[in-house]
């Protein structure tokens, strides 16, 4: 890749060491990159390793988990090698983060204003007055018309959608180069989801911020991302542009997902369900991790796990059908 990359994740493995010598290979050899100003989606079902990938990038993996292997190059520097102290300079400042449930990330005993100004003072070394002014601007930007009053409110006084917008204001307060949004709208109603995603998109364009958007909603991927990675069993199984993924999906799992999705546009009598269920991270089937559910399974699929290979420029697939 000649173009400059902002984030370059190489061979990332994050394992959890469970009781009875079991190992959960939550993230098992993940490669991807994000360019400045680009929105890249990480999509997959529950337990596929999306959150652990993002928490690994932020170096927020605690015991019994550990980053086993790999590099996380951010602006060319390997975050895996960063000390805790160095990471505090990265988190919230160079990389902002939004979680699914904002209540876990907002501090219930401080006002919204407090939480934004505190971040600004810590990272940007601005005066209290400057921080307050900037905080009010930010709140207005994310759609609080009465921002001065919102500054004085506590998280529990806000609705779910308002909290998520406040989270965005905090996450973008220090002009991060990368925003990681882990299911930012999963807990919200569609009308509020549309508000939030639109604000995120606007902020991204305004500040030329890159976004790593984690979701299990393929509709959200289609509307907001430029490139997408489909995760299954701790690995990327398909990686391409959003257009390609929906017009020319290749991996049997991606196809299965698309067919199982009811949509407003097309009417089907029966949904194409994928049989079985997502395997747990400590008991993947031998060989291809999708082999116990795949309608195209062959003998060799059960023997060894296929590699992620480039089948067309910019389109990578992990499946023997394409080797």
């Amino acid at each position: 890749m000649t173009e400059k990359t902002l984030l370059d994740v190489k061979g990332l493995k994050t394992y959890f060491y469970l009781e009875g010598k079991k190992v959960a290979k939550a993230v098992d050899g993940v490669h991807f990159s994000v360019k400045p100003g680009e929105t890249v989606a990480l999509v997959g079902e529950s337990g596929s390793g999306k959150s652990i990938t993002s928490l690994s990038i932020m170096k927020l993996i605690g015991k019994p988990g550990k980053i086993e292997e790999g590099q996380i190059l951010f602006n060319g520097k390997d975050l895996v090698k960063f000390s805790d102290k160095q990471m505090t300079q990265v988190r919230g400042r160079e990389i902002g983060m939004i979680f699914q449930e904002p209540m876990t990330a907002l501090n219930p005993v401080f006002t919204i204003g407090n939480q934004i100004t505190e971040t600004l003072i810590r990272h940007k070394k601005v005066s209290k007055a400057e921080a307050e002014k900037k905080a009010i601007d930010l709140l207005k930007l994310v759609g609080f018309p009465r921002a001065e009053e919102t500054m004085k409110e506590y998280p529990h006084q806000l609705s779910g959608g308002m909290r998520q917008r406040a989270m965005i204001a905090i996450a973008i307060s220090c002009d991060p180069k990368l925003l990681i949004a882990d299911e930012p709208t999963t807990a919200l109603d569609v009308t509020i989801q549309a508000q939030i995603l639109d604000i995120m998109d606007e902020m991204k364009k305004k500040f030329n911020m890159a976004v790593l958007l984690i979701t299990h909603d393929l509709g959200v991927v289609a509307e907001y991302a430029e490139r997408v990675m489909v995760m299954y069993g701790g690995q990327i199984v398909e990686q391409t542009t959003v257009e390609n993924l929906f017009l020319n999906p290749k991996h049997p799992y991606t196809n299965g997902l698309l067919e199982s999705l009811p949509s407003l546009e097309k009417e089907v009598d029966r949904l194409g369900a994928i049989k079985g269920m997502v395997p747990a991270a400590h008991e993947f089937p031998a060989g291809c991790r999708f082999s116990d559910r795949c309608p195209h399974v062959m003998d060799k699929c059960k023997a060894a796990n296929p590699e992620l290979v480039t089948v067309e420029p910019g389109h990578n697939v992990r499946c023997y059908l394409y080797e």
Binding site: S159, G161, M162, D189, V190, T191, I192, Q193, A194, Q195, L197, D198, D217, L218, G219, V220, V221, A222, E223, Y224, V242, E243, F246, L247, L258, L261, S263, L264, E265
Partner: peptide, 20 residues
């Protein structure tokens, strides 16, 4: 407001202001 997987025909969104 329902996000659509139809990448060729984007629907126009009506973004509602405020909450319930």
């Amino acid at each position: 407001a329902v996000p659509s997987t139809d990448v060729l025909n984007k629907r126009e969104k009506i973004i509602l202001k405020g909450d319930l």
